[in-house]
Simulated scan of single mutants.
Amino acid sequence: MKPLKEFVIPFIGLKVGAHQFEYKIGPEFFEYFEYDDFNNVNVDVCVNLVKKETLLELQFKISGIVNVNCDLTNEPFDQFIENEFNLVVKFGEAYDDENIDILILPHGAYELNIQQYVYELIVLSVPIKRVHPGVEDGTLNSDILKRLEELSPKTEDKKETIEDIDPRWNTLKKLLTGK
């Protein structure tokens, strides 16, 4: 996969000190990775790079909105995401990215590709369970929600089953509660 040019930082020409890079991430970024879980994406990425004599420190900050489908109703909604990630880039004999927070580049390296870190940070910022805000506060009118409510077990059935329990078990329950 050919790297996206805008996410390649040529650090060899930068002066020692702090540098800031800003990116606007849209749906075309995720098309590059062939990731189609998002309907739409509008995320701002700010990368603060501090160049030191022997290493680089990067701080990634993202905030924005991804449009995803609700896991319960399949209705699309905008999910706000915000996250941070710190990365230390050191130089060594060979490329090594086994440690999550430390990247080792070969001594002759002159640029750093951050597209994979941006991609993973955005994808991992979205909650595992995606629930439409209208489901939580009861304002969403959806055929799927109505059907789920019709098919859900009724509370009256639970009361009947409690009464149908053998009364001998009630004395054992007293042992658990101490009453």
Rank of each mutant, 00 (worst) to 15 (best):
P10F: 09
P10Q: 11
L14H: 07
L14Y: 11
K15E: 15
K15P: 10
V16F: 08
V16N: 14
V16P: 03
G17Y: 04
F21A: 12
F21W: 08
E22W: 03
E22C: 00
Y23R: 11
I25T: 15
P27L: 10
P27Y: 07
P27I: 12
P27Q: 10
E28Y: 08
F30K: 09
F30H: 13
E31L: 03
E31T: 12
Y32M: 09
Y32K: 07
F33T: 15
F33N: 13
E34M: 11
E34V: 08
D36E: 09
D36Y: 14
D36M: 13
F38M: 03
V41K: 01
D44E: 06
D44N: 14
V50I: 14
V50S: 12
V50G: 00
K51E: 05
K51P: 01
L55E: 13
L56H: 02
L58N: 00
F60P: 00
K61A: 12
I62S: 04
I62Q: 07
I62F: 01
I62Y: 08
S63V: 12
I65L: 04
I65N: 03
V66L: 07
N67A: 04
V68C: 14
V68K: 04
C70K: 09
D71V: 12
L72N: 07
T73H: 07
T73I: 14
T73W: 04
N74K: 11
E75T: 15
D78E: 13
Q79H: 15
I81N: 08
F85R: 03
N86A: 09
V89S: 03
K90Y: 01
F91P: 05
G92N: 05
E93W: 09
A94D: 15
Y95G: 03
Y95H: 08
D96W: 03
D96H: 01
D97N: 10
E98D: 04
E98P: 00
N99R: 01
I100S: 10
I102S: 02
L103A: 02
L105S: 02
L105E: 06
L105V: 15
G108S: 13
E111M: 09
I114N: 02
Q115D: 12
Q115A: 06
V118T: 14
V118A: 01
L121E: 01
I122W: 04
V123F: 02
V123G: 00
L124G: 05
S125Q: 02
P127L: 05
P127A: 10
I128A: 05
R130Q: 14
R130A: 11
R130G: 04
V131Q: 01
P133C: 06
P133K: 06
V135M: 05
E136S: 13
D137H: 02
L140S: 10
I144M: 07
I144W: 00
I144S: 03
K146G: 09
R147Q: 07
L148Q: 08
E149G: 12
E150C: 02
S152Y: 09
S152C: 10
